[in-house]
Simulated assay, not measured.
Amino acid sequence: MGIEESGVGEYVSKAVQIIEESGLNYQITAMGTQIETDNLNKLYEVCANVQEAIFEMGVPRVYTVLKIDDRRDKENRTLKEKVKSVEDRIK
């Protein structure tokens, strides 16, 4: 926020680069990036690193939305498995 242009691809690319370097599994979508981890502290660390990197790019205000789906009643609830579960039901 606080930039002259409406496109944010440059900033999203930087964020994704940081996520990639963290080693966490992730999935880019048209309206957000999903990150997969069983370690919330690592997630928070990566998010903080992204925030700081965007500030360092000269953006005066960074707006981040975190939604956490922490499911513990089933094993192997990966991003891929969640998508597959829905796709299997619509076939």
Rank of each mutant, 00 (worst) to 15 (best):
M1I: 10
M1R: 12
V8A: 08
V8S: 06
G9Q: 12
G9I: 07
E10T: 08
Y11T: 09
Y11K: 01
Y11F: 15
V12K: 00
S13T: 15
Q17R: 08
I18M: 01
I18K: 02
G23T: 04
L24G: 07
L24T: 11
N25I: 11
T29G: 06
T29Q: 04
G32D: 04
G32V: 11
T33E: 07
Q34M: 14
I35R: 01
I35V: 15
E36S: 02
T37Y: 00
D38V: 09
D38G: 15
N39K: 11
N39T: 06
N39G: 06
N39V: 12
N39Q: 14
L40W: 14
L40G: 04
L40D: 05
N41S: 15
N41M: 12
N41K: 15
K42H: 06
K42A: 03
L43W: 03
L43R: 02
Y44R: 07
E45R: 13
E45N: 09
E45F: 06
V46Y: 03
C47Q: 01
N49F: 00
V50E: 00
E52H: 05
E52V: 12
A53P: 08
A53N: 08
F55L: 11
F55A: 06
F55I: 10
E56L: 15
E56V: 10
M57L: 14
M57W: 03
P60C: 00
P60A: 06
R61D: 12
V62H: 00
L66M: 12
K67E: 12
K67Q: 13
K67Y: 09
D69V: 11
D69H: 15
D70C: 13
R71Q: 08
R71P: 06
R72S: 15
R72D: 06
D73C: 03
K74F: 13
E75T: 11
E75P: 11
N76T: 06
N76K: 09
R77N: 08
T78I: 05
E81N: 14
E81D: 06
K82N: 02
K82I: 02
K82V: 04
K82E: 01
K82Y: 02
V83P: 02
V83Y: 05
S85F: 12
S85P: 03
V86A: 10
V86E: 04
V86N: 06
V86C: 00
K91E: 08
